[in-house]
């Protein structure tokens, strides 16, 4: 059984976009030790993206390749969660983006990490053996990422007044984006129907429990979510993805015949 390429691309896009975002911290971390830790996580994400794009490329055939898929698809073709493309700060438009805020980084990594630990665990049993193998490898990485972001989130929430306020603001800003995890997408439905994907709605109560338990320990409040439902995984992104890809793809696209 083989997963549809669209599903693999969704998973790969998630990994590459968050890996790209987190690597923006490289050289700018709050302390050397943490700079190194975050770079490790970026490397894990880029590694996951590469495996998934490579697998997708074999399924798509033709001239598809890891880098064609990463560098020569536009924002509207990307299928990552909107959450992952947001800059490392509060609610600002793309060309007003301010300094990186580590609380935003941490909360995003936590919300996504909590999901991916459950999703990779489920995908280990995917009928697509290639995908199951990637899931088994990625699960270990995601477990560490969750551990790391959870640890920091608790330190922020229960640290100083400032760190608490920053963490709560980041939770308030980002939480609504996690709603996208539970919404429909054609690619996911097809993968679930074919027995190669995981129905995320079945993971929701476990995710809720993990998140609630952490927020409680961190002395942070879970905000009420209502209104707009992001849908990056269906190709409807925020304003930010085009900037992110514009930067990521600029060199590869300037030299389409280049070898690197």
């Amino acid at each position: 059984m083989k997963a549809n390429a669209a599903y693999l691309l969704h998973l790969a896009d998630n990994a590459v976009v968050l890996g790209q975002r987190n690597s923006e911290w490289c050289g700018h971390g709050p302390i050397l030790e943490e700079d190194i830790a975050l770079a490790n996580m970026s490397l894990d994400m880029i590694g996951q993206a590469r495996l998934l794009y490579q697998l997708a490329a074999t399924r798509i055939g033709g001239d598809a390749s890891e880098d064609r898929l990463a560098y020569f698809r536009d924002a509207s073709e990307y299928r990552n969660y909107t959450l992952l493309e947001l800059p490392h700060n509060g609610p600002l438009v793309g060309y007003a983006v301010a300094d990186r805020d580590y609380a935003t980084t941490t909360v995003r990594n936590f919300l996504y990490g909590a999901l991916m630990v459950l999703l990779w665990d489920g995908l280990q049993k995917s009928a697509d053996e290639d995908l199951a193998a990637i899931a088994a490898k990625s699960l270990k990485e995601a477990s560490y990422h969750l551990h790391h972001s959870r640890d920091w989130l608790i330190r922020f929430g229960d640290g100083t007044e400032e760190s608490h306020a920053r963490a709560q603001a980041a939770v308030d800003h980002l939480f609504a984006y996690s709603e996208e995890f539970w919404s429909d997408s054609v690619a996911e439905s097809a993968a679930v129907d074919a027995g190669v994907g995981v129905d995320l709605r079945e993971l929701r109560s476990a995710w809720d429990a993990l998140v609630d338990e952490t927020l409680t320990e961190a002395k942070l409040a879970r905000p009420e979510v209502k209104g707009y439902l992001p849908s990056g995984k269906n190709g409807a992104h925020s304003e930010h993805l085009s900037y992110l890809l514009g930067e990521m793809q600029v060199l590869a696209r300037a030299h389409p015949g280049g070898t690197w």
């Binding site: 030790e33 943490e34 190194i36 830790a37 490790n40 640890d151 330190r155």
Partner: peptide, 20 residues
């Protein structure tokens, strides 16, 4: 050696710094 706020954190950071 490395700097960390407490033992749990030191252990994590040691993993990232010294076992890459």
């Amino acid at each position: 050696s490395l700097h960390a706020a407490d033992a749990a954190q030191a252990l994590h950071m040691a993993r990232d710094v010294y076992t890459r």
